[in-house]
Amino acid sequence: MTEYALEVENLRKSFGGQVAVDGVSFSLPPGGSLAVVGESGSGKTTTARMLVGLERPDAGRIRVGGRDRSAAARGRATRLSRARELQMVFQDPYLSLDPRVSVAQCVEEPLRLHFAMSPRERRARRDELLARVGLGGREADALPRRLSGGQRQRVALARALATEPKVLILDEATAALDVSIQAQILDLLAEIRRESGVGYVFVTHNLALVRHVADDVLVLHQGRVVESGPSSRVLTAPEHPYTRLLLHSVPRPGWDPARIAADRRALATESKESS
């Protein structure tokens, strides 16, 4: 039963009559990495937020290690045990850290909440986590505004790893970074997954990232899964026209925006007729 680290079944959510997520199902093996790909309005961010409990699904189930977490958390014990199952890294490094809390404090806070540690043990663990993401004592004393975007995202990563989650939800975690910095963070993420066996759900709009970060991919369009499978297969032999459109849309030599525009219109008419 507990073969999967994360199992999602038939997840559904609407906001004021507008369906955002419509019957999304997937599963993630322990230490696996799944990319959830889609454009704005595809429901990818809503899905991520439901996984960590920031939104309640209208229907469907979310299980981590076999334990259900679809209903609202009742009581401190449930809240804490859920926090040790899933953690999240957000997109905007400039808004995801409390501007008044130093880097060291930021990483110590979850340690204090979740583990009975002496202050010395806690400091040691904090330094270990910061070192893991490539930050040293100089950064530890700083407030977030002294750090660059990449450094802040490292802090957010260390903070998320502090509760030792089984799965990390990365919600466009590198989208706001410069390309040269994004690659550093991707490298770091791969290294952490190899060493710790944490699983990733990589929410992104950037198909070019997928093959480098995920074993499997899930393509969302207007709240529904239109295609899923191993990254290498989906990227080389996409079956759904929307996946093909997404692939063609990535700029590269020989890119033909006019054709993509035509394909997109064709797809829009098609989906209008079918619904």
Partner: peptide, 11 residues
């Protein structure tokens, strides 16, 4: 803002 949500996710 995500920093508040990060604390919610932390429990």
């Amino acid at each position: 803002r995500p920093y508040i949500q990060a604390y919610q996710v932390q429990g």
